[in-house]
Amino acid sequence: MNIKEKIYNISDSVVFSKTTAAFGGLSNMASGYSLFVNEVNIANSEILYQICRFPLFPKLQEDIISLENPMEAKALARKYEKYTRQDWENVKVDIMRWCLQVKLIQNEDTFSELLKSTGDKAIVEYSAKDPFWGAVPTENGKLQGKNVLGRLLTEVREIIVKQNQKLEMVSPLTIPAFLLFNYPIEAVHTAEYSVEDLDNVYAY
């Protein structure tokens, strides 16, 4: 994967790390951004990302989802790393981008506002040791790394800010075996789509 490392000035960037600190909601580990994919309740985008590793292991997907806690989910996924889909390295960035789009479409008020509040600064995930998804501190007080998560967040921000678009639907990825519990993952809708008419069953 040909993504080049960058060096970021902290003062010119929106840097996030801990979920409880400023801009913590940008983290995949943040609580408060629940999802509904194939009408299955998924507590956060980290869990969504981790279940995409294991399309042929529905029981493992079920166990990961039931944890609800993203740190525990990540730990469980690591334990079963050998069952990761073979093309994971080639598809994981696309999967992460899709996860962020799902987080955005189903958390219109909160996540979209948070992204907008980053203005036009670079979004950088501070990490002590992962220069792929985030950027690590350098000796001269900067951050260096591929910062893929930060860049994907910036990309998602572009959709809502620059293009001023409201996502109507997030289409599934066209990769093989994009499955949840053995069923193809289908288009993901807004929270409003699933919730708005729940009270209408007996309105006649």
């Binding site: 609580s31 408060g32 629940s34 009408e39 609800e68 909160t110 929270a191 699933s194 919730v195 729940l198």
Partner: peptide, 21 residues
């Protein structure tokens, strides 16, 4: 189970995902 999934989601969203467990 189907209706339950929808109602859990609705309760999550109506209360800013705070209700949880």
């Amino acid at each position: 189970t189907w209706g339950h999934a929808f109602q859990k989601y609705r309760l999550n969203k109506d209360f800013q995902d705070a209700l949880g467990r």
